[in-house]
């Protein structure tokens, strides 16, 4: 009776995560999405090595003929700057701002959504009414107000995105919490004297993760669009740092003569957005199976 049975080693976190990522193979669509996203992530990480030129360096000679050449593969823009290099460096902006904004929005959204759904009562009313007010404004007008007020900078773009996205996340998390709080395992946790904080974070939140991961993925796509739109409206990053939306804005007037100037950054934006939404589709497809 004294012999204890050896427990099989539980795979460590990294391994379990890798096993989950490999599941994506089951969904071809998800694989395409993952490939697109991974491509841009690699581009952003290795930008200094990939970019053939300094993104802000103007080559006045190129202004004579800004179309693609052997030196400037994707051509140059209206100020003679290499478009490929600007796209490569620009990916850093998008891929730093979007995940950071989504992460902050999720932290706040989950917390407020859990509190609203778990406690209900007056605190739920307060959180909900504030969310309603924010949600009742057209998002784009809110962005303009926020950025105009605070001035264009990466930090302010993140704040604006968090401000708009958080109420939407609160809605989702609150709805799921309302359902999950009625599960018997939550009652069991209460009966053994767990704190509300423990119940929310350990008993409820992990079971909401499936839909939240999908939503986070989609939201990264939306945020990419938003950053593009803000850049296009001149509310993105202050010049001269490369910014995909800003690149389109600077050159769209020349669309008829030199379409490549605005077309390439536009393609960059949409390929990343499409990548995120295909990835979300793939994750959803896999989670619906078995």
């Amino acid at each position: 009776m004294t012999a204890t049975i050896a427990r099989p080693a539980r795979p460590n976190f990294a391994r379990r995560t890798w096993m989950r990522v490999r599941l994506l193979k089951e969904s071809p669509i998800g694989m395409v999405g993952a490939f697109l996203v991974a491509f841009w992530v690699l581009v952003a990480v290795f930008a200094p090595w990939i970019a053939p030129h300094d993104p802000n360096e103007s080559n006045m000679d190129a202004l004579i003929d800004p179309t693609p050449t052997a030196v400037n593969w994707l051509g140059t823009d209206n100020q003679g700057r290499d478009i490929l290099s600007r796209i490569v460096w620009g990916s850093r902006t998008v891929l730093a701002v979007a995940p950071l904004a989504v992460l902050i929005a999720y932290t706040l959204g989950c917390l407020l959504g859990l509190i609203a759904g778990y406690y209900r009562g007056w605190i739920d009313q307060v959180i909900n009414r504030i969310s309603d007010i924010i949600l009742s404004f057209p998002a784009i007008i809110l962005y303009i107000i926020v950025i105009m007020r605070l001035g264009p900078s990466a930090m302010n773009v993140i704040m604006a995105v968090v401000f708009i996205a958080t109420p939407q996340i609160v809605r989702i998390v609150r709805g799921m919490t309302l359902e999950l709080r009625e599960q018997d395992y939550v009652s069991a946790a209460k009966m053994r004297g767990e704190t509300a904080f423990y119940i929310m974070l350990t008993e409820i939140l992990p079971n909401a993760r499936g839909p939240l991961i999908v939503d986070a993925c989609l939201r990264m796509g939306y945020t990419t669009i938003t950053i593009g739109v803000l850049g296009f409206l001149g509310l993105g990053l202050p010049p001269p740092d490369p910014d995909w939306g800003g690149m389109v804005k600077d050159t769209y007037a020349m669309m008829t003569i030199y379409p490549h100037m605005s077309l390439f950054p536009a393609i960059a934006i949409s390929s990343l957005v499409v990548g995120f939404s295909l990835l979300a589709d793939g994750i959803r497809e896999i989670s619906l199976r078995d």
Partner: peptide, 20 residues
Amino acid sequence: TKRAIQMVFQNPDSTLNPSH
């Protein structure tokens, strides 16, 4: 008191947290 009263629930599917 918490220790003295414990409960077994009806639905086997909601009695255990699927994440744990």
